[in-house]
């Protein structure tokens, strides 16, 4: 599979290390093989050179000429509605969930576990019920389709 995300002007990246850890930024220019010039006017990342192993590339890319000023980056960022797009992405959701999980207290963890177990019980009973129905119908008609899983109820937390 060919690479799809490149270190290029306009590529949006997540900073994974350093003082701005966890913030989004946009690559403005590539300095050399290991460093890039980065700017994040909407997320509080000052324009700076950063090592490439300190950032994770995302699927988003802004369109602006290379070495564009902060003003240009901001404009492109806003026009692309990047904040909304990022918030809607799965990656952002996972980060949020991770954060939430880390902040759970012992009692919260217990409540989550009990909620999960009740959900799983409901799900297995529903599944077994469908399975039984399927078996019956199979004996009735030999060319019956396999039973589908019912949609799992959402997590309590």
């Amino acid at each position: 599979m060919p690479f799809k995300r490149f270190v290029e002007t306009g590529r949006v990246a997540l900073i994974s290390d350093g003082p701005n850890k966890g913030k989004l930024c946009c690559i403005v220019d590539v300095i050399n093989q290991t460093r890039a010039l980065v700017d994040g006017p909407e997320t509080g990342v000052p324009r700076q050179g950063i090592r490439l192993n300190q950032i994770h590339l995302t699927k988003f890319r802004l369109r602006f000429p290379y070495t564009g000023s902060t003003r240009v980056v901001r404009k492109a960022w806003k026009e692309a509605k990047l904040d909304e797009k990022w918030a809607a992405s799965k990656w952002a959701g996972k980060m949020e969930a991770k954060k939430k999980r880390a902040e759970l207290t012992d009692f919260d963890r217990f409540k989550l576990n009990s909620a999960r177990s009740t959900r799983n019980k409901l799900r297995t009973t529903a599944f077994l019920h469908l399975k039984r129905l399927n078996k019956k119908s199979k004996t009735a008609k030999k060319d019956a389709k396999p039973a589908k899983k019912p949609a799992a109820p959402k997590k309590a937390k």
Binding site: A102, F107, K111, S114
Partner: peptide
Amino acid sequence: DACHMRKYLCTMFGFRSSQYPHRMK
């Protein structure tokens, strides 16, 4: 939370996999 608290007090504490006390709240 009364029902949860009763159950909470009834159950034993333990770690699952990849749970570390120094990282937990």
